[in-house]
């Protein structure tokens, strides 16, 4: 059996005196696109931070690419909720940030900028980009090291609806082209169903696993496909605490 890229079993995560995650366990295997959805405060972003190695104060077990989560794994790309571009660096320097001063001249930077549609903005500063362009630059930076696993924390929550659709399609194309395994945290159930092979639904107070919905619809998907709407309904039912047969899968 293939070893999962992410194998997580968190029994408790506390912030000060408050338990934010009570019992969450799931796995993500190679090539999967998995979304974590849930209401505010269910700990979905915290789970992503644990997987990224940004938070190691928890009870339970976590394994990412076969070892304990740690910062700066070349094989893990991370895209935050906000683009977090360094304002004093150009777009190209931000994308090649990992390599330092010479990063901007690396051929991979030009390739990625072309891929995300920012080839003409290589020498622009972040202040000259729109919200959508900045997030595309952040995605390009997350892909720079050719990661096997791409972690995204509500990456499209701060952009308008049109830009969000464009970025969702870009992410889908990139994940397929790079054969990357993707874990996406989002509060948008429609986005999760449209993009993912599997949607993991969390409940809040404290965060725990509510169930999951498998999306066995081949790509390219049509946003108006009634089958997607049906699965979105199932995920919403799970969010509301209604038992869904498929969630036992």
């Amino acid at each position: 059996m293939t070893q999962p890229l992410i194998d997580l079993s968190i029994t408790e995560k506390r912030f000060a005196e408050k338990t934010v995650i009570a019992d969450v366990a799931f796995q993500v295997v190679q090539g999967e696109v998995v979304s974590l959805v849930g209401p505010s405060g269910c700990g979905k972003s915290t789970l992503l931070r644990i997987i990224a190695g940004l938070d190691s104060d928890y009870d339970g077990q976590a394994s990412v690419l076969g070892h304990a989560p740690r910062l700066h794994l070349d094989e893990v790309g991370l895209v935050f909720q906000e683009p977090r571009l360094l304002p004093w660096l150009t777009v190209a320097q931000n994308v090649g940030f990992e390599l330092g001063a010479k990063g901007a001249r690396h051929p991979r930077v030009a390739e990625l900028l072309a891929e995300v549609g920012l080839a003409d903005h290589a020498n622009a500063y972040p202040k000259q980009l729109s919200g959508g362009q900045a997030q595309r630059a952040a995605i390009a930076r997350g892909l720079f090291s050719r990661p096997r696993l791409l972690l995204l924390d509500e990456p499209f929550s701060a952009v308008d609806a049109f830009t969000r659709m464009r970025l969702q399609d870009l992410l889908k194309a990139i994940a397929a082209r790079h054969d990357a395994t993707v874990l996406l945290v989002t509060h948008d159930v429609g986005e999760a169903v449209y993009l993912s092979d599997r949607v993991i639904v969390l409940a809040s107070g404290p965060g725990r696993l509510r169930g999951q919905v498998r999306v066995d619809i081949p790509h390219p998907r049509d946003r108006r496909d009634p089958a997607l709407a049906l699965l979105e309904g199932q995920a919403l039912s799970l969010l509301e605490g209604v038992a869904v047969e498929q969630s036992a899968a």
Binding site: N123, Q128, L129, S130, G132, Q133, F162, R166
Partner: peptide, 13 residues
């Protein structure tokens, strides 16, 4: 078109 809309919103350098 979403792409055109985004490009219009962006300030080119």
């Amino acid at each position: 078109h979403p792409v055109a809309a985004e490009q219009r919103r962006a300030r080119a350098p």
